[in-house]
């Protein structure tokens, strides 16, 4: 039987939804499922880890793991993978996953694939599917070893409702700290804001909004909808939005029920981060803007005019 080890996606002390999504997929392919959780003061997450669908929980809980450092993080995953005898090791889509997966693969001498959107097992033969070239094509990849380390693309798998597991906690010893890469400081992202990755609705603002007043205008729309508020790279480069708000190939990959692109042209690198959304609405004054090629609904118009009307109309239908 295949054995899947899932690396728990923990952010600011909270277990993220990707963990349940990944274990749902693991169960769907008939695999035995374990999870490895890495951090400091994370014992309280054990019930959540069980409820996310794991049957063994490897816990690396140590003050030295408070801040992310790829070396020790990868060591914990390798340790758990060896103890569990995992042949599939999956990270949810995250910067820590992207940083640690190639290390884990190199240490285990395993195959490595990032941003996978599907995985199939035919006996011992593992195959995965993933996008490449800024999502322009898909690759089908045959794995020639019996071990694969993979980062799963955001939104690739769905959580099965009512999924659950059994508690079987295994404590891992603390890894050695990386003395050659010392984390000096973490400049935390603003807390209390809606995480783009979790949001059911995402409203993103682009260069069309011009300045802070334009950004604030679009933000009000996001607030009305309790939506995640994202941006194109142009607005991050312009200093209007924080790095963690960037949607696209270099930023967050989102797949919400509704994505609103306001004043965004639709560059390929931006599309790569949002074209998995269920419904896309675009507002752009240029009828030829490429964003309209992927939008389900397009409003050709000046966002400064359209956004206030949009807010009013949405209030009406939601009333």
């Amino acid at each position: 039987m295949a054995k899947v080890l899932i690396v728990a996606d923990i952010k600011q002390g909270v277990l993220k939804g990707s963990t349940a999504e990944l274990s749902s997929k693991a169960k769907a392919i008939g695999a035995e499922t374990a999870v490895v959780a890495i951090g400091s003061n994370i014992e309280s997450l054990i019930p959540d880890l069980v409820n996310a669908g794991s049957d063994t929980q490897y816990i690396a809980d140590d003050p030295s793991l408070e801040l992310f450092s790829a070396g020790p993080y990868a060591s914990c995953v390798v340790d758990a993978a060896k103890q569990f005898g995992a042949n599939l090791i999956w990270f949810g889509f995250s910067e820590s996953g992207k940083a640690a997966a190639p290390r884990v693969a190199a240490q285990l001498d395993a195959a490595c694939a990032t941003e996978i959107t599907d995985v199939t097992l035919d006996g011992d033969q593992i195959e995965v599917v993933r996008p490449a070239i800024a999502n322009k094509v898909m690759q089908r990849i045959k794995v020639n070893t019996d071990q694969l380390v993979a980062v799963v693309r955001a939104g690739a798998f769905e959580a099965t409702e009512g999924i659950t597991g059994t508690e079987n906690v295994v404590k891992l010893s603390a890894p050695e700290t990386d003395l050659k890469a010392v984390i000096k400081e973490l400049i935390s992202d603003a807390s209390g804001e809606i995480d783009l990755a979790d949001a059911d609705v995402v409203v993103s603002v682009g260069r069309g909004a011009k300045d802070q007043a334009g950004v604030d205008l679009v933000k009000e729309l996001a607030n009305d909808l309790q939506a995640g508020f994202g941006a194109s790279r142009a607005m991050i480069d312009g200093g209007f939005m924080a790095h963690n708000k960037q949607v696209g190939q270099t930023g967050k990959i989102v797949a919400p029920t509704l994505y609103m692109a306001i004043g965004i042209s639709g560059a390929i690198q931006h599309l790569a981060g949002m074209n998995g959304s269920k419904v896309i609405l675009a507002v752009n004054k240029d009828p030829e803007a490429p964003i309209f090629n992927v939008a389900d609904y397009g409003i050709v118009g000046d966002l400064f005019e359209v956004v206030p009307i949009l807010r009013e109309e949405i209030k009406k239908v939601r009333a």
Partner: peptide, 18 residues
């Protein structure tokens, strides 16, 4: 350890109503 055995077209979205 792994090899690409096939390229496939991405699912493209259809342009909707403008």
């Amino acid at each position: 350890k792994s090899e690409v055995i096939e390229f496939m077209a991405s699912k493209t979205r259809e342009a909707g109503q403008k």
